[in-house]
Amino acid sequence: MNQANKLLMLIVVFGLIALAPMLITQESLLNIVIMTLYAALLGQAWNILGGYGGQVSFGHAAYFGTGAYAVAVLQVQFGINPWLGLVVGGFAAAAVGAFIGFCTFRYGLRGSYFALVTLAFAEVLRILSNSVDFTGAGVGLLIPLERSAANFQFASKEGFFWVIWAMTFAAFLTVWKIGNSRFGAQLMAVRDNEDAARALGVDAFRVKMGAIMLSGFFAGLAGVFYAQYFLYLDPHIAYGAAISVESLLVPIIGGMGTLFGPLLGAAFLHGLSELSRAVIGDAPGISLVLYGVLLVVMVLFVPRGLAGLASHLRSGKPAESRVEEGKGHA
């Protein structure tokens, strides 16, 4: 698919999704669509850095939580409107991305070490938010209920739908643009071979910084949305490992470094967990077991994700992995 067709397809897909509020009248079903879009947003955020930039992060909760806490704290402690909080949340998360990126990329951390350090940063933030007062410490923050669109609290799910739809669409358009720009070309070059990219004049540090900030920004938006949708936050929700895992699982299942991968992954994951709930019931942990199994299976057998599998079936060519053999161990 060339770039123009991808854009067309993107518009068509989001256009179809936009019909959901018209077709779906049941709030609980619309909720599934909303949560799927939200997961796609989070996954696409991760995908910018992990899929296009090749920097696997285990700590995307750092950005998510920062966005969520920004909007909640501004509201609860300072009475600032959450729409303004949305902007602040996105940029605050991008700033956290810049800080983590600077600390890691400046010193050449890559691969597993990068992953572990990002996890440690998220943990530090979790403990901090657990220990200071203005985040409500361990008790958490309850955003006062005040239903009105001006207050980013909609009376019906449809309002939330349009917000998450717009945010997710914006993220996907951004990623389309990445796939069709100098920045994106350089980012993917750094991912595939950093030395070769630098030899061709690519400033790897700058490019990775750009990616981590963009990635942080969109993850922060997802956090803002989460806070407004559920109106409650605590350190475990905001900075806990579950968010970090979800944000990497979605694009890995859907296809890392592909435009539509996060949407496929989000739809697949939510479909699966709904299915498992229907079949097995609400047993604790079972849907997470499925997630774990999926992660293992995908990395082991389908390293290019559902998107790679789809293009493989279409072209009939072998779906070999992007990664070079023989460079690593075991």
């Binding site: 696997v56 285990f58 691969g111 597993s112 992953a115 572990l116 895992v245 990497l248 890995i252 604790p284 942990g285 079972i286 997470l288 077991v289 997630y291 774990g292 199994v293 999926l294 992660l295 293992v296 990395v299 082991l300 390293p303 992995s321 990664v323 070079e324 053999e325 023989g326 460079k327 690593g328 161990h329 075991a330």
Partner: peptide
């Protein structure tokens, strides 16, 4: 691994999710 050490990290993360849950 498929040649990338992050893949091992991901698979062992998957295993830990499975075992814990």
């Amino acid at each position: 691994s498929h040649g990338r050490d992050e893949n091992i990290l991901l698979v062992t993360l998957g295993l830990s999710i499975i075992i814990e849950n």
